[in-house]
Amino acid sequence: MSIYLEIFLAFLKIGTVSFGGGYGMIPIIRDEMLSRGWITDDVLWNYIAIAESTPGPIAINLATFVGNDLAGFWGSLLATTAVVIPAFVIILIIAAIFKNFASNKYVKAAMKGVTPIIWGLIISTGLLLVVKCFYAEYNDFDAAGEFNFHALVIFAVVGGIALGYRLIRKKKIPPIALILISAAAGMIYYIPL
């Protein structure tokens, strides 16, 4: 199968099942990409960081990134188009034909079942990434990785700032601010003065 077709189908699948916005999409993209061996966790991590600190929907940013990685410009165009198509078609059908879609009892019931799964996916992915900061090889028991003490310090600093911001300003810290702070923390901590 040609790589273009494979990219298109993979992102079509991702676009069809990604409920819950950008964060709901991250676990699914990660799952699909890792199982195909298209990118590693580390690269995806960087991509997510860049996607979060550039404008636009996270899903579009990630699709463009991964598509370009796999097959250049046309790959990124295909991936972006594929991730958009399901949402576009479904909304068009709903807007043209169904008047009270969101208040339909079966739609509500399906969403009631999906939402907890999305929470599970996102929280699990987030926690696994936290653990992965400390142990790079947490899922390879033979090569039990060393504990990364630097990551713990950065975790404490960044987590403390995020929590402090939340307590003082009574709202969530903007993602881009959090990323900039953690980048600064990483640079300061690793560069020997």
């Binding site: 991590w45 996916l121 929280i123 900061c133 702070i181 953690s182 980048a183 901590y189 690793y190």
Partner: peptide
């Protein structure tokens, strides 16, 4: 080095988004 730090930030970001 910066991205070493960003890794931690992203992990926190995703977890807190889910929570």
């Amino acid at each position: 080095y910066a991205f070493e730090g960003i890794k931690v930030g992203i992990a926190i970001l995703i977890t807190s988004a889910g929570v």
